[in-house]
Amino acid sequence: MTTQALVQVLASGLLMGLIYALIAVGLSLIFGLMDVVNFAHGEFLMLAMYATFGLVLVTQLDPVVLMPLVAALLFVLGAAAYLGVVRFAMRAKANQGMVQIFATFGLAILLQGAAQYLFTPDYRNVQNTWLGGRTLDLGGIFLPWPQIFGAFVSLAAFGGLHLLMSRTDFGRALEATREDQGAVALVGIDRNRVFALGWGLGAALVGLAGAVLAIFYYIHPQVGASFALIAYVTVALGGFGSVGGALVAGIIVGLVEAVTAVILPPALKSIGVYALYLAVVFARPQGLFGRL
């Protein structure tokens, strides 16, 4: 392999990896906050892609412009999922972990079924976008603009999240709630409000990812599943609950996937990622940056 080809593979992997990190970070954030794995995370992504598609049709604006609106819609969806479903699952007297798993899993099936019914199983794509189909030529290395844009959105989102967590009172309330959700009432914080906002924030982040993916990926009711699988691997690799871990792990997953795709037949491109994941699970079950 020439140096140029290698750089091409790594650069593409890096860009996709940053997008994977953006898909995964909301999942990790919610887990870190309240030890709940959201099995409807992929469906949130799917709905964000449909929301982008629908908004483009209605407003004739570009997905790049609509992205904040999609994130806001997903924020509402995430908060509603907590207030309408998860909150009640957490009140289970016995087997709370199982109840939570089935509650979010049920939500996933519901959302997928609803999408199937409302949007039909047809594949859709957003057409005539500013970035779709365009590539940047960096001296023989070709990088697709949608992925470049997605990578920058991801970096900006991680930067913003870091500032939010470390500099604001809401960030401190999130940290305190993840430390000891039973103690925040002592300082006058309503943990249900923090949880609802946390779910909203996690969903808004995957909303950003959905708006980006809608530019270059087909949209259909099952589209969330494959990305969700990568997101679970990313979160486990980075350490459940670790925001920084999701960033590093997303990049690793993107790079490993890109390299595997050149070494093995394209259909097997996910194998490298799962092999890496298994290796981490054996060597470091808490993930790279997780605390057990």
């Binding site: 401190r172 940290e175 305190a176 430390e179 000891d180 103690a183």
Partner: peptide, 10 residues
């Protein structure tokens, strides 16, 4: 019920 991983200031 302090938040042990957070700073005194936080």
């Amino acid at each position: 019920r302090l938040f042990p991983r957070l700073s005194v200031s936080d």
